[in-house]
Design a protein around this nucleic acid. Sequence first.
RNA 1: GUGGGUGUGGCCUAGCGGUUAGGGCGUCAGGUUGUGGCCCUGAAGAUCGGGGGUUCAAAUCCCCUCACCCACCCCA
Length: 419
Amino acid sequence: MAHYQAPRGMNDTLPEDAELWRHIRDTAERVARLFDYRQITTPIVEDAGVFLRSVGDESDLVQKEMYLFEDRGGDRLALRPEGTAAVCRAYLEHGMGSRPQPVRLFYIGPFFRYDRPQAGRYRQLWQFGAEAIGSDSPAVDAELIELQAMLYRELGLTDLVLRINSIGTAESRARYIEALREHFWPYLGSLSKDSQRRFETNVLRILDSKEEQDRAAVASAPSILDFLDETDTLHFTHVKRFLESAGIEYVVDPFIVRGLDYYTRTVWEFEPASAAGQSTVGAGGRYDGLMELLGGPATPGVGFATGIERIAINLREQGRGPSAEQAVDVVTVPLGDTGAAAALRVASMLRAAGVSVRAGVPGRSMKAAMRAADASGAAYALIIGDREAAEGVATLKPLRGDGEQRTVAFAELAAAIRG
RNA sequence: GUGGGUGUGGCCUAGCGGUUAGGGCGUCAGGUUGUGGCCCUGAAGAUCGGGGGUUCAAAUCCCCUCACCCACCCCA
């Protein structure tokens, strides 16, 4: 019979990967707390409107990538495709506007996008994200970028390039889009097929076209930075200044655009210097208009999200990450019925004392039991047969390095093992 | 969503029209009496991703399908 497989684009995380994942998550949470960000956990499912209204009806994320379904009560729900809108919904729902501003939050968890899978691109993906809601200060933009940069640095993920841009307000962007249309209009016939389509759907996307034939038209295109109003320009200037004083290297890339409608002003991306394929490791931006889209009062916000799988991929490529899986301290070698019973008691005693113990399977030959103990990587084998059991002792045998085995009373074992 | 590549026991892989589908790693059991790591022996485990077809004969050729991967699209 045909065997079941995990759903397309969704993966099991096996024990050998878990160590790396835990390292990434622990580091992320630690760094977030260093900046006084506190964890928020929202449901994996939201009212579809949370994303439809905020992310933008026209975006690909909503148009073709969102898992939508109706529950038995007829409510229209969505598997969350991203974190920011959900965090903002929670901010409004719980009246966080009356907390000290900005409210600094981080989250980590699975997200869902109905994409065609590829390496580093999955239908269920894990993201770590941080949001600061309630302040439009450029210092907060810089703080988020610094947090994200520190996370990568702490993980040993060098080789990343930070690219930043400002896409202004909805109004200045509208003027820019108009100017882009005018600019590309004369070239339309010579543009690539994709870009001709983008001309209709999303002109901004033409800017990051990889097509050779689009290059000239793109190179001479106007820059969004020339369309920002005075306050947005000033805001961007301050962000850059703060980054400099924080010692964070960046490049301004006026061609960074965003697929989600809610972004305003600052946007940024971290990419491997040797960029290729699904390479963006994390990206963020400011979203001053988002709260109103969700029906709340005008409230500025800024945040980023980073893909755990993509971090893991990059760490593996660079040969970073935790060096070895942690081995158990002790493996018991139970012999005979009385010995097996005693081994169980000793194991629980040791665990209570904080020593990790793998219970050896009774009934095997001693040779097999010792082989298993050795293969486990444990520091000690603890032999408990009928003979030992009768005397209330165990044979403690070091498996690494030299060192003689010795007979130790049950009560002394924990101390003997800890050395 | 578009175009392309790949798919052999848990993992890596040989075979590429007629083989009992071979090997390595791993797993389990042994190598006499309660002691591992090396070595040796043995065992289990594959209808060759799945389904159809061509052929006297298919893991090997063709079609469909599924999954992964690559380039787009898009994004973390």
